[in-house]
Design a binder for these strands. Structure first.
Lengths: 179, 179
DNA sequence: CTATTATTTCACTAATTCCTGAAATTACGA
DNA sequence: TCGTAATTTCAGGAATTAGTGAAATAATAG
């Protein structure tokens, strides 16, 4: 299995970006390879294409599955497992948002909720609690909204996104001062 | 400088989450401390509060400044530098989105743009290019929209967010099938 | 079942990232 | 300008994370 230079560039870029995205180089590469492949690939295909160890590929695929970013299937008359990235880019986007939220935001939201149950007893803590409350409110509002939007049909979301800041004009009881 | 147990919990949580957010433990702690402090703090205050080395605090503050998440100022009759997190949570949110976009998304967007300039010459590459184009389009549309929304007044954004999926009803030329 | 192929686990090494203390540099008051 | 306080730089050790190969386990064809 050899990868065209065109694909190669994309794969290497994903590898490099991986660390910024909270995955490692090889996981980024595996995902990129599957993303551009027109066919599902088995683990050995990936080993050949990327020059990684078999065990590393196995672990990388497990991680990608834990992110729900790859699906696996079996082909007829072949006992190996084949992996692919979902076709639908909207589905990918939705899952990515959900998983990142689960990992990066939900724990903090729940910590904030817990902390805000307590009654602060000093001025210092009253100030801190107020700051936590602001953070909690903003995060909660934003994530709730994201949830809501994700439930809309992609076509609707596209309309909304294309509208951009223009939505403000549609908002009920708008007041002229906010632009 | 001692930190109340209430603040402590928040600070330690941010430290732990740091690695998921692409910053390290101490940077997370420093930010959390500044976020809940009612007063700007100097580097030695932070050393005392968190038990880190002076040099580590210095590097952490530099990193937070590179994220534009902390401001620095001088107090009268004191040559030390004092640091604080911006008051306005909306401002913090805006900056965070901007910086993450710059680090995590823009490089990929530009790689995709470059790659899509080329004419694919094989079927394999034509398929890959189509996948890249889908990704490019989705990212571009989403980031453009985020830019646009960030320009609205917070009050307007709050209205929009509170509306949730209800926006779909306001959208022009909606069709009844999309819910 | 058994033999063979496929996959996972895991102990170990490599690579990277984090953190510190010492030294160097910078800023500023006298 | 000099001396001191404040800050930054940086080399090296500590800690963490990534990647490998060998061995174990799982799956299935015959």
């Amino acid at each position: 299995m050899n990868v065209t230079p065109f694909k190669q560039r994309f794969i290497l870029h994903f590898g490099e970006m991986g660390s910024r995205w909270g995955i490692n180089r090889t996981v980024g590469q595996i995902y990129a390879l599957l993303y551009v492949s027109s066919q599902p690939l088995n683990a050995d295909d990936i080993v050949d294409a990327l020059g990684l160890s078999r065990s590393n590929v196995s672990m990388g695929l497990k991680e990608l599955q834990s992110w729900r970013l790859v699906n696996s299937q079996h082909l007829p008359n072949d006992r190996r497992e084949y992996f692919s990235a979902p076709e639908d880019i909207w589905e990918i986007f939705r899952v990515l948002v959900e998983e990142r939220r689960k990992r990066e935001i939900d724990p903090t939201l729940s910590m904030l909720r817990d902390a805000l149950m307590e009654q602060p007893t000093s001025d210092e803590d009253r100030h801190a609690a107020a700051r936590l409350a602001e953070m909690h409110e903003l995060i909660e509002m934003t994530t709730r909204w994201v949830d809501d939007i994700q439930r809309l049909a992609p076509k609707t979301v596209i309309k909304l996104f294309k509208l951009g800041g223009g939505v403000s004009k549609l908002l009920p009881s708008r007041n002229a001062a906010n632009n």
